[in-house]
Amino acid sequence: MDLLITGGCGFVGGHLAESFVADGHDVTVLDNLDDFYSLDIKRYNVSAARTAADESDGSYTLIEGDIRDQPTVDEAVDGADVVFHQAAQAGVRHSVEEPQAVNAVNVTGTLNCLQAARAADVDRFVLASSSSVYGKPQYLPYDEEHPTLPISPYGASKVAAEQYTRVFHEVHGVSTVILRYFTVYGPRMRPNMAISNFVSRCMNDEPPVVYGDGSQTRDFTYVDDIVTANRTLLTSDAADGEVLNIGSNDNIDIRSLAALIRDRLAPGLDLEFTERYDADAEHTHADVQKAHERIGYEPTTNIRDGVEKFIGWYRDNRDWYEPLVRN
């Protein structure tokens, strides 16, 4: 199949590109190669996908361009069977400081991609959304019917992107699926995430720093489970027009997560605490029953096993990855 991945040099997009190419698909990636969290990681992802192409019947093409530019998007989408729209301006905290920039990428950029997908008559358009759309929990775990009450401009931009995607399905007949990711982690993850910071500090005999009192909880989803959910949508139309939570079906408080990593790497350290950010969600926890029913989704990696896998990858790649975390 001919696949387009927007943001395909990023964390999730890079894993998708490598996986799809290894399976023999022809993958085009559209990415502006910005350095918001690290060009080194994006270059690593490009190299991994190109290596996969060399070892398979698939192909890999990189288009350096921006989803905010409609002609560029039109050119990239033309000829694609399925579009995996992963491109976004990430960062809840960053969105508080730069809401207009986040809106331009996450809302206008998504609308550009939908317009192009409609014109090209693609088979399916898959939007990467976020648990940030839920915001303040009225109940847990979140199911897909939970009200969307975001507490950050990032979350609000994802709600808007979802609504445009819904409209294009209902009004224009575009086959769309919205996947709400819950805190994805794993190899090549953004270096400013909690897990990478906890691991780095403990490996350097420094106490992990927890924002707030650590009672806030997160549903951490290993990147391989995210890839599996997206792979299913290559051929399944069982979720067309739907919104699906893609999480781990479990959660952990941040204090316990820090202690788990500390106990594994540097048990003699104490935890440190600092002021938390107001825009950070208090709790996230995914109900993935709908995803199970529609596409057979089953998360396979719990947080303890996922952390162990990440630590192993971190050790193997410490020379180049650790400076990014500690920058």
Rank of each mutant, 00 (worst) to 15 (best):
V21F: 02
A22N: 05
G24H: 11
D26H: 15
V27G: 02
L30D: 04
D31V: 03
N32M: 06
D34W: 08
F36H: 15
S38K: 06
S38G: 15
L39M: 10
L39C: 03
K42L: 07
R43T: 07
R43G: 02
Y44V: 09
Y44D: 12
V46L: 15
V46Y: 00
A48T: 04
A48S: 13
A48Q: 11
A49K: 02
T51E: 14
A53W: 02
E55L: 13
E55T: 11
D57E: 15
D57G: 15
G58N: 05
Y60F: 15
Y60C: 06
T61S: 11
L62D: 04
L62M: 09
G65Y: 00
D66S: 13
D66K: 05
I67E: 01
D69V: 14
D69R: 11
V73L: 08
V73N: 04
V73S: 04
V73A: 06
D74W: 01
A76T: 05
A76H: 02
V77T: 07
A80C: 10
D81T: 10
V82Q: 01
F84A: 02
F84M: 10
H85A: 08
Q86H: 07
Q86D: 10
Q89W: 07
A90S: 11
H94I: 09
H94C: 01
S95K: 09
E98I: 04
P99H: 06
A101M: 11
A101C: 04
V105H: 01
V105D: 02
N106H: 10
V107A: 05
L111I: 11
C113T: 14
L114Q: 00
Q115W: 03
A117Y: 07
A119V: 10
A119H: 09
A120C: 07
V122N: 08
